[in-house]
Structure formats: structure tokens, C-alpha cells
Design a protein around this nucleic acid. Structure first.
Lengths: 153, 153
DNA sequence: CTGAATCCTGGTTGATACTG
DNA sequence: CAGTATCAACCAGGATTCAG
């Protein structure tokens, strides 16, 4: 997720800006990151209740503190998540979706439905392609084959 | 990319098998890549017409041949795109969405609508955060403000 | 308990050049 | 025209450690 600055693009030795405007591209840059969409989902499920940091980590199996922190920061900066700090001695931080964040849950759910309905077929297509080149065809090495170790759920 | 799931590591790498992967995560891994969703969009707009390789590259500003090729291969392997080759002397290759691919266009369009409706607000939220720490009292000294020369590792 | 700072890795992208 | 191969760079993200 592009850390800060939607206004400028700090990288690129020479121009690599393909499209400055396309909001869809930028949205995908965000929700496409490993944990963002899961965080939104978990927070949406709890909504309107708040969820604490540790609780979030518990519900998002496999996420590290760093990534949870970074993900929540990103979402907070984007205005999708609200952060509330209890200034107690062991500080408690609560997170919840903003209305904007909840509105994102809708298209995200549509994506989830599609995934659950059709990803099996995608996998089947992949397997067909795999066995087609299974014998010996060095010409087309599979760019991403059957089961890349994708960690978390 | 760990070709097969046999990512045996003699001694160093600790456990890497975590999760079979929820379908949503895997879907996002695909459409979250830089060009995939754009390709689907462009192909969907042309549907049911076919689009040739060069034409696709023309419509997807900034994409390199390599990435276009890789993107189309991925989509084809996933069963979202169909490929047709005209065996002429200068070969012509045509691409079009499969029914499966067209079905993906739907949730993707929902995402696009959300993006166009709300990304401006996301940007506003980002700007608010930026100027909050951009003032005269940088609570967080920028480690690399405008570092032009990125020393190689 | 929350979260920031640091080091390191490999997967992803890009530019370029070559082939059929 | 439609790719592929190679080289180099970048960045997400995981582990670890430190701090309030």
C-alpha cells in the first residue's frame, strides 16, 4: 500500500506513472494488499462493535504485529477505520469501521461471493493447463503454478 | 514463487505451510496485480468482440509487452480469457473474455463504482493526515524525505 | 498492550534485446 | 506482430527487537 501521499509519487527514477487518475487502480493497490480486505471484513463482522488490537490479531490468523499495525494505519489514514485510544496504563486501542469503510464492505462482499462461487473453476482451469505442459515443455515455464504457498487465510 | 508445494528447506526456513487459502485472498492476489483488472475491463468493454495483442497494449497505457503477455497468460490459465491464434505470416492473436471472465466483470464493476464514488474522500482523508504531520513541528522526522539517490544495497 | 524501528528476503515489475 | 529471455530495481511483508 502506498504509504503516504496520494498527491505525489516519490518513486520512479524516470516516469513510471501510467495513469495518475484511475481510482480503481488505487483502490486495488489498497485492498489488494495482503491483509487489508481481511481487516475490513473482520471489522465489518464486528460492526458496530469496536475491536481491540490484540483481538484483531487473534481473528486474523497469521498476521504479524507489524502488518496489523501497518494495515490499520493505512485504513485509518484512508478514513475507512476509526481509532479510539483508552489512555489507561496498559493502553487499549479500539478500532471500528467508519461509514465509509462500511460502504466498502458491500463491493468487497460481492467480490467474496464471486470468489467462493467461481474460484474452484479457476483452479480447475489452472490444473488443466498444468497437466497440458506436464510432460516436457521447457518453452513455457508456468509463471504461477498450482499451489503457491499463500500463507494466511 | 516456489513452483511446487514441495518447498523443502533443509534447515533454515521454518514452517511455510500456513493455509490452503481462502478464495477471496487468492482472487485478490490476481486482480490486485497491476494490470489484471484493467485487462479484464478493457476486454469487457470490447466484448463480445475480440481484441488483438497490440490493440490491448494500445488501450492499456503504459504496459510493457512482458507484463501484457504475462497478464494475458495468467488470465488465460485461469480460464477467464480465451486466446485465438490466426496462423498467418505475421501472426495475429485475439483475446476475449470467457463467460467466467465476463461474470467477474460484475463484482469488478461494483468495485469500480465504489472507487469512483469514494476515492476522492479517501484522498481527502489522506491529505488531512499529511498536513497534520507536515507542519513546522515534525513529530516524526522524515527518515527519507526526498532522497533522490537511492544507494544500491 | 500497543506499536514503532530495523534488517532481510523473494516475488513482482520494468527496460531492453532477441526470436519466429 | 507476438511473444520470450535477461538483467536490475523496488517494495510488500515477515521476524525480531525496542519503547511507552
Amino acid at each position: 500500500m502506498t504509504p503516504s501521499s496520494t498527491s505525489r509519487s516519490p518513486n520512479s527514477a524516470r516516469g513510471d506513472l501510467f495513469d495518475p487518475g484511475c481510482p480503481t487502480r488505487r483502490l486495488l493497490d489498497r485492498i489488494g494488499t495482503k491483509w487489508t480486505s481481511m481487516a475490513v471484513k473482520v471489522l465489518a463482522e464486528a460492526s458496530p462493535e469496536e475491536v481491540r488490537f490484540a483481538e484483531l490479531q487473534r481473528r486474523m490468523t497469521g498476521i504479524s504485529q507489524k502488518m496489523l499495525s501497518a494495515t490499520l494505519q493505512g485504513l485509518t489514514r484512508d478514513g475507512l477505520v476509526a481509532r479510539r485510544v483508552e489512555a489507561t496504563v496498559p493502553p487499549r486501542v479500539h478500532y471500528r469501521l467508519t461509514p465509509l469503510g462500511r460502504s466498502l464492505e458491500e463491493p468487497l462482499a460481492a467480490l467474496r461471493e464471486w470468489a467462493e462461487a467461481h474460484m474452484a473453476e479457476v483452479d480447475r482451469a489452472n490444473r488443466r493447463g498444468d497437466e497440458a505442459s506436464a510432460g516436457s515443455s521447457p518453452a513455457v515455464p508456468p509463471a504461477r503454478a498450482g499451489s503457491p504457498p499463500r500463507p494466511p487465510r
